[in-house]
């Protein structure tokens, strides 16, 4: 395991490279794309566990933090979707440079899944994209997370002084949401993608949801093989009492195992 900073000096990204721990070494590496905000913190340990599992199965693996999130540079006030989509490309190139591989799979979680899918649309070196409970519509995510923030802070002590929170000034559940990002999220939908450069897209869901059905129907119109499956318990993303509790690998083992297998599925 090698933690390091990479990318442009004006946009440093924190990453951890996990070299393969088994032979034969797989030809396809894996880049993990985390969620943002409180979901980033909640999933940190399970994504580490997933990375170790993939490395133990012979994969070169890269984890990284988005610009303005986690240990990466930026304070979150200047983040935007195009920048994050570009971060995926930077991470892919870094893994390719580090390991010598030429193809990658992407595993994305929540908004990280949406960003990974958007990045894959523009590339020709992506094998599988695995989407764990992806954000299909940015507008729904935005309203959900703002509502969750208000509910969380209402339950916290001290009670809020005003009836509604101010996401512009105070962010949402610890994540700054600058106006640019909010506007971009409001206009974003995975069902608007018209291309997909990946060989296969796999949606893995904690529970059935109409958004995943819409996404599956849309993927069927694109020239890409796609699957959608419910792999059982996931992150309880909407549960206000889970916001500050870290997910543990043993809580979601079937989900992690399923994602690892899908990420490693190769045509070879």
């Amino acid at each position: 395991m090698n933690p390091f900073y990479f990318g442009r000096s004006q946009r440093p990204l924190f990453g951890i490279y996990h070299p393969p721990h088994a032979r034969p070494v797989r030809k396809t590496g894996v880049v993990l794309c985390p969620p943002i905000g409180h979901e980033y913190a909640r999933t940190h340990r399970v994504l580490r566990h997933l990375a170790l599992s993939l490395a133990d199965a012979g994969c070169h693996v890269m984890r990284f933090d988005w610009y303005g999130v986690g240990d990466s540079g930026g304070d979150g006030s200047d983040v935007d979707l195009p920048g994050w989509i570009a971060d995926v490309g930077t991470a892919i190139e870094e893994l390719k440079d580090t390991s010598g591989i030429t193809r990658v799979s992407l595993v994305g979680v929540r908004l990280g899944a949406a960003i990974a899918m958007s990045a894959a649309a523009k590339r020709r070196d992506v094998e599988n994209v695995v989407l764990w409970d992806p954000i299909v519509r940015g507008s729904t995510y935005l309203s959900d997370v703002i509502a969750l923030n208000e509910q969380f802070l209402r339950n916290e002590y001290p009670p809020p002084r005003s009836r509604s929170e101010n996401p512009e000034r105070d962010g949402v559940l610890g994540q700054p949401l600058p106006a640019t990002l909010r506007d971009q999220l409001a206009a974003f939908s995975l069902t608007s993608l018209t291309t997909c450069g990946a060989r296969a897209v796999h949606v893995v869901a904690s529970a059935p949801h109409s958004h995943f059905d819409e996404l599956s129907a849309h993927l069927a119109t694109l020239p890409v093989r796609s699957t959608c499956q419910v792999l059982g318990r996931g992150g309880d993303w909407d549960a206000v009492d889970r916001i500050v509790s870290a997910l543990l690998p043993q809580q979601i083992q079937p989900m992690l195992q399923g994602m690892a297998e899908l990420a490693m599925a190769e045509a070879e």
């Binding site: 923030n149 969380f152 802070l153 916290e156 002084r161 000034r169 105070d170 962010g171 610890g174 500050v244």
Partner: peptide, 13 residues
């Protein structure tokens, strides 16, 4: 900090 919650969730806090 009379207005802050335990994890200082709001950026101003």
């Amino acid at each position: 900090f009379p207005d802050a919650n335990h994890t200082f969730t709001r950026r101003s806090h």
